[in-house]
Amino acid sequence: MVIGSFQSYRNEVDPDGVARHGITVVRRISGGGAMFMEAGNCITYSLYVPQSLVDGISFADSYAFLDAWVMAALEKLGITAFYVPLNDIATEQGKIGGAAQKRLANGGMLHHVTMSYDIDADKMVEVLRIGKEKLSDKGTRSAKKRVDPLRRQTGLARTDIIKAMQEVFTERYGATESRITDAELAIARERVQSKFGTEEWLHRVP
């Protein structure tokens, strides 16, 4: 389970449900709402790009601009998707996923999306406090929205959806495959240990 950078842990997370289901809760560096994510039940990706790529585009329009290739991939799979401002990807059946951004001081930006492939709705309502009484006056709240996963909408395997997304991205942008190096992984693990995996970071908004 992932909560947004500016969200209150107490408002978003049900500690009893998290403990009962053995859920790990982390806080990302970008804003937006909480996402219930389980291995194999979601499709998530990140774009690391220069902010100059969206020069002249409004903050709101930059979301749809950076995810235009995803809309094309979903269309290829027979899904007519659209953006619901500010940052939701949806169809007429409901929300598929959401995007978030973080603009960095070095001129770079992170744009990432999580889409629901399948969902254990019963478990989700036990670990998320969306729509429940506010316990803290800190942070931004997640909105209660109807989610309609890609598995139900397409009937396709998760790997087939990912393959279609990779194909469209490669066709549009001439992407080439690469691998994260051992050195990069070591840096990432150190950052988890020193900051992003700490209780101080997780509970920075009470």
Score class of each variant (00 low, 15 high):
6 F>R: 13
8 S>F: 11
10 R>D: 15
10 R>M: 12
13 V>K: 00
13 V>H: 00
14 D>E: 08
15 P>K: 00
15 P>D: 05
16 D>E: 12
16 D>A: 12
17 G>N: 04
20 R>C: 07
21 H>S: 08
22 G>T: 10
22 G>K: 14
22 G>A: 12
23 I>N: 05
23 I>V: 15
25 V>N: 03
25 V>R: 02
26 V>P: 09
26 V>H: 03
28 R>A: 08
31 G>L: 06
35 M>L: 13
35 M>P: 03
36 F>E: 01
38 E>M: 08
39 A>L: 09
40 G>N: 07
41 N>I: 00
41 N>R: 07
42 C>L: 09
42 C>D: 10
44 T>D: 05
46 S>L: 06
49 V>L: 11
51 Q>H: 04
52 S>H: 04
52 S>D: 10
57 I>P: 09
59 F>A: 02
59 F>E: 01
59 F>Y: 07
59 F>W: 04
60 A>E: 07
61 D>V: 00
61 D>K: 07
63 Y>V: 04
63 Y>M: 02
63 Y>S: 03
63 Y>P: 02
65 F>Y: 13
65 F>M: 04
66 L>C: 12
66 L>G: 08
66 L>M: 14
66 L>Y: 09
67 D>L: 10
67 D>Q: 08
69 W>L: 07
70 V>E: 09
70 V>K: 05
72 A>T: 11
73 A>H: 12
73 A>N: 10
78 G>E: 02
80 T>V: 06
80 T>F: 03
81 A>E: 07
81 A>Q: 11
81 A>C: 08
82 F>M: 01
84 V>M: 06
85 P>G: 00
85 P>C: 00
86 L>P: 15
89 I>Y: 09
89 I>H: 05
90 A>S: 13
92 E>P: 05
93 Q>L: 03
94 G>E: 08
94 G>W: 15
97 G>M: 04
97 G>S: 00
98 G>P: 13
99 A>H: 05
103 R>E: 05
103 R>K: 14
104 L>M: 14
105 A>D: 13
105 A>K: 12
105 A>I: 07
105 A>M: 10
108 G>E: 04
109 M>Q: 03
110 L>T: 05
112 H>S: 06
112 H>F: 14
113 V>E: 07
113 V>Y: 11
114 T>F: 15
114 T>W: 12
116 S>I: 09
117 Y>H: 12
117 Y>E: 06
117 Y>G: 07
119 I>Q: 11
121 A>P: 03
123 K>C: 05
126 E>V: 09
126 E>Y: 10
127 V>E: 00
128 L>S: 10
128 L>P: 15
129 R>I: 08
